[in-house]
Write a protein that binds this DNA or RNA. Structure first.
Length: 582
RNA sequence: UCGGGGAUGGUGUAAUUGGCAACACAGCUGGUUCUGGUCCAGUCGUUGGGGGUUCGAGUCCUCCUCCCCGAACCA
């Protein structure tokens, strides 16, 4: 086909690193080239406001919005609110907020409920055309008559009603004359079709529940199938993208649109595989089950894959977007390693996050030859530290230093294991940005617990470099003891121990990681922490990236840890759990 | 059981549409480094299986196997 030539031309001119293409982009591109929809591209993101957005939605959001952007098209947001029993306004607000946070702004916002009048009119149109009928049977009967896989359905005794009777009954359904569950409107298609979706699907059901937007204006509500494609058509959507499980619904999507008096080319549906991650779940039902448990803090518990949780945990929206673009879109069911997402988070944060020092499990370090002032107190000296070695422009900060410091508990071992480079008697290490110190021993209490580590420092090594050029194998972080801020830190591990939660028993809960959250109190932070820009994520050197809690300025959530060669080494040596830094 | 969809390294995605299997994550080895971080280099696959077409197959044909989705008045 001659389209190919044109396509490669476009590609050559196209933006540099865009590069990535996929079957959907190829499809859209070819529609643009062929002039289908007059070259227009319009997509939509259609969440049902019955829950919070999660990482899986992020993929659909990125796909729809980016695709539109790349094609000079538009992407609208549509709340698919056709079921008054499950939907709520608070979800509408939350979805709006999450979308904004992710960095997308819809070209317009609609609700399926906006189309109730049009949908009703079209339903009468189908009745008039003999393509829809009112069925008086109950749910169980209809379900039984639908047949099964490889088993034909049975025709409803009400299928042959006259148009006039159907019209009358349908109007009375709308007027609220009948109780819930007593009647439905069905499309008259084919009870023998091997595609179950086409066996006279339900278009309307009677609901007495109040709708969060239309109140009690309506007694009947359209089903997903009867609302979705029509909403697309009304809005002028060209490419309706949804997940794989709707593949069989496509035939119905097309049937409805084919039988309606549309004034422009009908949109068409294309399915893609939804995003799933290892060690977590994204189904609304399973998520809710977790939230209902006492040990999960709510929909924004940082261990959850909801967008609000990821936000609270410090995941940069750009990292989520990059991740979604990178994993691309295909029709293969798969589950991406959560490590990949984390690597995008690290890449982003490594470049952007300012460095600070924090000691999670403090151990006192005394520099025995450090000078004292007139009152016998250690002299305080200010050391200059780089805010981010990856980004000179971030400048430096001053941190107090003295002969009385907090260091990390596991940065000292009286008897160092093999390959242990940190403090141990006789060993010299660098205190980051401070001095080279040599360990002289430790002090213990009556129970034999280490209470202090003693060192001497080399006054010639201010800043951390030795004039004689000698090297040390380790640089450790510290916080000056008299200026330290106290606080707490929450460490997070995988929510589920299994890569595929519930794979063995069918119940994800069975694979819940009992140690998914560890709250450490009594942490020591460098004073500069108090002057951090709001909701910024910092790197605590050698520990990982941390986000301040929105309500408690002295509580930090670990976004993600740093890669930790030492922990890996230890794990291999002992076969045991990771080091204290986790 | 019927219909629809899928299968490429440890993982996920790609392959100019029939032309030397690429990228990333993870792993491993080494180097650099005032973070055991970052960075750099190297290493790790005969594309689910059989048969066929072809000079040439991940790509086309055929048979088989395995996996996912579908029988809500949910979306």
């Amino acid at each position: 086909m001659s389209q190919n030539n044109k396509k490669s031309l476009v590609d050559e001119e196209g933006s540099e690193a865009r590069g990535r293409t996929d079957f959907i982009r190829t499809l859209v591109e070819s529609d643009v080239q062929s002039g289908r929809f007059d070259g227009r591209v319009q997509t939509r993101f259609p969440p049902e406001p019955n829950g919070y957005l999660h990482i899986g939605h992020a993929k659909a959001i990125c796909l729809n919005f980016l695709l539109a952007e790349e094609s000079n098209g538009i992407c609208k947001l549509r709340f698919d609110d056709t079921n008054p029993e499950t939907e709520d306004e608070r979800y509408v607000e939350a979805i709006l907020e999450d979308l904004r946070w992710l960095g997308f702004s819809p070209d317009d916002i609609h609700h399926s409920s906006d189309y109730f009048p049009q949908l009703y009119e079209w339903a009468e149109h189908l009745i008039q055309a003999g393509l829809a009928y009112v069925d008086d049977q109950d749910s169980a009967t209809i379900s039984k008559q639908r047949g099964g896989f490889g088993k034909a359905g049975v025709i409803s005794p009400f299928r042959s009603r006259s148009i006039a009777e159907n019209l009358d009954l349908f109007r009375r359904m709308k007027d609220g004359e009948f109780p819930e569950g007593s009647r439905v409107l069905r499309a008259l298609i084919d009870m023998q079709n091997e595609n179950m979706q086409l066996r006279d699907p339900i278009m309307y059901r009677i609901r007495t529940e109040e709708h969060h937007r239309t109140g009690r204006d309506w007694a009947i509500y359209p089903t997903y199938d009867w609302a979705h494609g029509q909403g697309d058509a009304i809005e002028g959507v060209t490419h309706s993208l949804c997940s794989l499980e709707f593949s069989d619904n496509r035939a119905l999507y097309e049937w409805f649109l084919d039988n309606l008096p549309l004034n422009r080319p009908a949109p068409y549906q294309t399915e893609f595989a939804r995003l799933e991650l290892t060690h977590t779940v994204t189904s609304k039902r399973k998520l809710k089950e977790l939230v209902d448990r006492a040990d999960i803090d709510g929909w924004d518990d940082p261990r959850l894959p909801t967008l609000k949780a990821l936000r609270r945990r410090g995941y940069p929206p750009s990292a989520i977007r990059d991740f979604c673009s990178f994993v691309g879109v295909s029709r293969t069911n798969s589950r991406h390693a959560i490590e990949l997402l984390e690597s995008f988070v690290r890449t982003e944060l490594n470049a952007k996050a300012q460095r600070r020092m924090a000691v999670l499990r403090p151990l006192k370090l005394i520099i025995t030859n450090w000078p004292a002032d007139g009152n016998g107190q250690p002299v305080i000296e200010y050391r200059s530290l780089m805010n981010n070695p990856e980004n000179e422009a971030d400048g430096t900060r001053q941190a107090p230093f003295s002969g009385e410091l907090w260091i990390e508990d596991d940065d000292y071992r009286q008897e160092p294991p093999p390959k242990y480079f940190r403090l141990s008697p006789g060993r010299e290490v660098r205190l980051r940005g401070g001095y080279l110190v040599t360990c002289t021993g430790d002090v213990r209490d009556d129970d034999g617990n280490i209470t202090e580590v003693h060192c001497t420092y080399d006054p010639l090594t201010a800043g951390g470099a030795a004039p004689d050029g000698r090297k040390v194998k380790a640089t450790i972080h510290w916080v000056e003891a008299n200026h330290a801020l106290d606080g707490a830190v929450a460490l997070y591990e995988r929510l589920f121990t299994a890569e595929v939660p519930g794979e063995k028993t069918g119940e994800p809960i069975d694979d819940l990681n009992p140690a998914s959250r560890e709250l450490i109190t009594g942490c020591k932070f460098e004073p500069e922490l108090g002057e951090l820009p709001n909701d910024d994520v910092v790197q605590f050197e050698r520990l990982g990236y941390f986000a301040v809690d929105e309500n408690d300025p002295r509580l930090f959530h670990r976004t993600v840890g740093l890669r930790d060669e030492w922990a890996k080494l230890q794990q291999r040596q002992t076969g045991g759990p990771q080091g204290a830094r986790g």
